[in-house]
C-alpha cells in the first residue's frame, strides 16, 4: 500500500508539473490548487471521521475508538493548516489578497478553531477516561454546528471562491486533463489519510 501511494503521488506531481497547462494569467504557482483542494477535502473527511469514532466511543466505551478519533483530529488539524495556507496563496494570486473572509475561508477557519479547541481540550484533561468522554462529547457537539455554518455563512459574506467541481448546474467547467489530475490527487490524499489512520 505504501509503495502504491508513493508511486501514485509521484505520478500526480509529475503530471501537475509537465502535463497540466499553466493556468492563464496566474503562472505556475497557481498549480498549488492541486495541493489545496485535496488537503481541504481530507480536512473535512477527517472531521467527520473523528466525530464518527467519537460516537462509537460513547456507544461502546472502546478506547481504540477514542484513539482513532484523536488521531483523525490530529491529522485533520495538519491538513486543515496546509489547506488554509495553500488556499491563501491561491487567493493572493487570483484575487490579490491572502484573506477576505470568503464563506469557504470562514468555514475552514472555523474548522481550524474546532480542531485546535479539541486538541487543547485533550491536552488539558489528565484522566484518560474523563479525557476520552469529554473530547468525544465535544467532537459531536462541534460537528452539529457545521450544517448551520454552511447555511448561515453564505448569507453573511460575499463569495469569490470558485464553484465546486460539481456545481449546481451539474456541468463540469474544467479542462479534462485538469479534472482528471485533480480527481486523482483527491483520491491520493484520501488514501494517504486512510493509511495514516491505519498506522498503529
Amino acid at each position: 500500500m505504501n509503495k502504491i501511494l508513493i508511486v501514485l503521488t509521484a505520478a500526480i506531481v509529475a503530471a501537475i508539473i509537465f502535463f497540466v497547462p499553466p493556468i492563464r494569467g496566474l503562472g505556475e504557482l497557481a498549480k498549488i490548487i492541486f495541493f489545496h483542494v485535496p488537503t481541504a477535502w481530507v480536512a473535512v473527511i477527517a472531521f467527520f471521521t473523528g466525530a464518527w469514532y467519537a460516537a462509537k466511543f460513547l456507544r461502546t466505551n472502546d478506547f481504540t475508538a477514542d484513539e482513532l478519533s484523536a488521531r483523525a483530529a490530529k491529522l485533520g488539524f495538519v491538513f486543515v493548516l496546509l489547506s488554509t495556507a495553500s488556499g491563501a496563496i491561491f487567493s493572493k494570486l487570483t484575487w490579490g489578497a491572502y484573506w477576505n473572509w470568503d464563506p469557504r475561508q470562514t468555514t475552514i477557519f472555523v474548522l481550524i478553531l474546532i480542531y485546535g479547541a479539541y486538541l487543547t481540550l485533550r491536552s488539558a484533561v489528565a484522566d484518560e477516561k474523563v479525557r476520552a468522554k469529554v473530547s468525544a462529547v465535544y467532537s459531536l457537539f462541534s460537528v452539529l454546528t457545521v450544517p448551520f455554518l454552511v447555511f448561515i455563512v453564505p448569507r453573511m459574506f460575499f463569495s469569490l471562491h470558485p464553484e465546486p467541481v460539481l456545481n449546481s448546474s451539474g456541468r463540469v467547467q474544467m479542462d479534462t486533463v485538469v479534472l482528471i489530475v485533480l480527481i486523482a490527487s483527491v483520491i491520493d490524499a484520501t488514501l494517504l489519510f486512510v493509511q495514516l489512520m491505519r498506522r498503529s
Partner: peptide
Amino acid sequence: SAVAKGGLFPILLFPV
C-alpha cells in the same frame, strides 16, 4: 476536570 480552564472555556465555546 480540565486544567487551564479559564483559557479553555472561550476556545471551546466560540466555534459552537
